[in-house]
Computed example of a mutant assay.
Amino acid sequence: MKRILVPTDFSEHAENALKAAVLIAKKTKCELFILHLLEVPNQINDTITGGSSIPEEMLFIKKANEKLQKITEQPYLAGISVNVSVQYERTFSGILAFNKKNKIDLIVMGSHGTSGIEELLLGSNTEKVVRLSEIPVLVIKKDVRDLKFKNMVFASDFSPETKKPFIKMRDFAAIFDANLFLVFICTPNSFKTTLDAEKIMSKFIKNYEIKNYSLHIFNDTNVENGIVNFSKTIDADLIGLCTHGRTGLAHFFTGSISEDLVNHVTKPIITFKI
């Protein structure tokens, strides 16, 4: 991991994400990229390319750059390589384009928790970034003063296609020397006996070098509740999930589960693309 992106709308939630990114950067010696996106009228292109002046839009750009400069002067960023940028695109598409151009390894986004992501990522932008991003996305829900990455949950069906996401989750846990709890959620609509679930998980994990881990099977009414309730029982600091691109979360992670968890769960969530 070399480069971390933090999109910001200058809100408290975005600052929480930045502080979480700083924790990771200090562990990995990553560069931080702070991005502010301006969804301005198409006429701004005339200004950028030397056309007639548009005072209002230029004022927005100036203010955004001033705020970004103030962010870089915060004491908690001391000793960290920080790059700032203002882009003129829609939020989710701008983030995805910036990732590819700058070879970002991790996105860290701020969220309002149970109310969903506000200001920075309104409505479907949250689900779009999580669902379409080719790189891991970490969503932070609260002030990071009490944030620690000691107990991490990885919820999966442990199918072959989750191997690459699991490796990324394993490596992320290793950065913090965290305890990794691997959990298979059983529901009435996706039932497996304990014996069958144990065989699937044991076969999956034997292919990897990993320490500080444990295997768990958890029964609940549905997958979302299972992930939330299991995470509470072990006092998880972070929940890891696999995403499956345009079709949502793989196998039992279907429908609105990904969006519901990202928008409603108060714990930090990290997602990995299959």
Rank of each mutant, 00 (worst) to 15 (best):
I4G: 06
D9F: 03
E12T: 10
E12H: 04
A20T: 02
A21G: 08
V22I: 08
L23A: 02
A25N: 00
K27Y: 00
H36L: 11
E39N: 14
N42D: 01
I48H: 01
I54A: 08
P55N: 07
E56Y: 14
E56P: 03
E57R: 07
L59P: 05
K63G: 02
L77Q: 12
I80A: 12
S85Q: 15
V86K: 13
G94C: 12
L96D: 04
N99D: 13
K100R: 15
K103N: 12
L106A: 11
G113M: 09
T114M: 08
I117W: 12
I117L: 15
I117D: 11
L120V: 11
G123F: 07
E127R: 13
K128N: 07
K128P: 03
V129A: 00
R131I: 01
I135M: 12
P136M: 07
D146G: 06
D146N: 13
K150A: 09
N151M: 03
M152D: 09
S156R: 06
S156V: 05
S156C: 07
S159V: 01
P160N: 05
K163N: 12
K168L: 09
M169A: 15
M169W: 04
N179R: 05
N179F: 02
I185S: 12
C186L: 13
P188N: 05
S190A: 11
S190T: 05
S190C: 02
T193Y: 01
T194R: 14
E198P: 01
E198K: 15
K203V: 04
N207Y: 12
N212W: 02
S214H: 12
H216C: 10
V223R: 02
I227Y: 08
K232V: 08
I234K: 06
I234D: 05
D235M: 10
G240S: 14
T247G: 10
H251G: 04
F252M: 14
N263T: 09
I269M: 06
F272G: 02
